[in-house]
Write a protein that binds this DNA or RNA. Structure first.
Lengths: 207, 207
DNA sequence: TACATTACCAGACATTTGTCTGGTATGCAA
DNA sequence: TTGCATACCAGACAAATGTCTGGTAATGTA
């Protein structure tokens, strides 16, 4: 007999296990849950799963193989998708044309808008922990708030900076004392999107 | 008998059907494919699926329920998987058992070893662009090279540092002038793994 | 303490699901 | 024509998987 665990602790882990397996694409069977938690009885695993269903944290298709999953169609459920890693970000339209796609990056999305990724160039944001070569995950949106880190197009050049909205001007602030803020003409500034995540591939090459 | 369809046209639609079901989270059974395409025989659906596997467009887990999926885990092919985000990293062996898993993180892996993730604490590596709260993606391995950024266990505490192997000692170097290198006793040092990627979730909450 | 609840177990059973054997009809090429 | 491959079918079988019954022991609580 496995050692007993205090009140809902094991259940919490089982919930996360199931959720993780869903992200991997194949929901677990009851027996796979049993094995993952070193239970000796299938029923132990099933009772935990049924309890999670009663709590509303999991949903199930009765009698079906691998039928346990997240509650159906719940808004805000995280989903893993692949977003394009763009090479050059050029003026004007953001071309999701296939020619400029250098690869794909998996992200967990809650369906909150168009995402894309690009490689950071230059050292102007090292103070915020953003180094050259880092991958910025960006949500494509034309406006942003003061304090947001944004991808902006000034003239022909794409740049990652922190946005400061002043009374009379919009400023793009670096986070590195060696660089000066940029105060572009409003008509030559295009906000491409807001940086929502930074990644640094130390060893894994881009895909 | 259903009307015959010209050469691979039905197969193409079946491939799309399976792929669509995978995105929804639950791979189809052979019989579900049969019904979706109004076949009268299970075997018809299975033959199409097996043919797709032979063509390399699908993969399958033999004999397992809902075992058809996109090709995964082939040599060198990048695959998106979910790896556990560990809360506390405790002394002794790394329990990839479901203990202490705070969530899951999607990464593209080429099957090169066990991966896990953990949250960086402290400011000792800010000079390398690693900030507190960042997620470190780690490959579980007991040794590393000079210059690698590693997760090491000194006594009971897990820490992220740059590894320096000297003649007489192993040193763990911070990348922040406010911190001093750690020179642990060899017998109280355990290398848990090498950091291969850093992530910073600016907006997307952890999952 | 007594009692209910929880966590766990063992094993049988039922259903779902994958696999196999053998068959028919159509089109196509030698 | 003959032969072969393809697309489909019918039914049986085997394996995987969900479900049920009836337990034991630890834990929590009145």
């Amino acid at each position: 007999m496995s050692p007993r665990t205090p009140k809902g602790q094991t259940r919490e882990r089982i919930y996360r296990f199931v959720r993780g397996r869903l992200l991997e694409g194949l929901p677990p069977t009851v027996r796979e849950v049993r094995d993952a938690f070193n239970f000796h009885a299938v029923e132990t695993a099933r009772e935990h799963l049924e309890q999670l269903v009663r709590e509303g944290r999991l949903a199930k298709k009765k009698g079906k193989a691998r039928g346990y999953g997240l509650p159906t169609g719940f808004k805000g459920d995280p989903v893993t998708i692949a977003i394009p890693l763009l090479g050059r970000v050029q003026a004007g339209e953001l071309t999701t044309a296939v020619e400029d796609i250098e690869g794909y990056v998996p992200v967990q999305s809650r369906g909150t808008g168009d995402l894309f990724a690009l490689t950071v160039r230059g050292e102007s944001m090292t103070g915020a922990g953003i180094m050259p070569g880092d991958i910025a995950i960006v949500r494509h949106q034309p406006i942003a708030n003061t304090g947001d880190i944004v991808v902006a197009l000034v003239g022909d050049e794409a740049t990652v900076k922190r946005l400061r909205i002043k009374k009379n001007a919009i400023e793009l602030h670096p986070e590195n004392p060696d660089f000066e803020p940029i105060v572009p003409d409003t008509n030559e500034l295009v906000i491409l999107g807001k940086v929502i995540e930074i990644r640094r591939y130390i060893e894994i090459p881009k895909v």
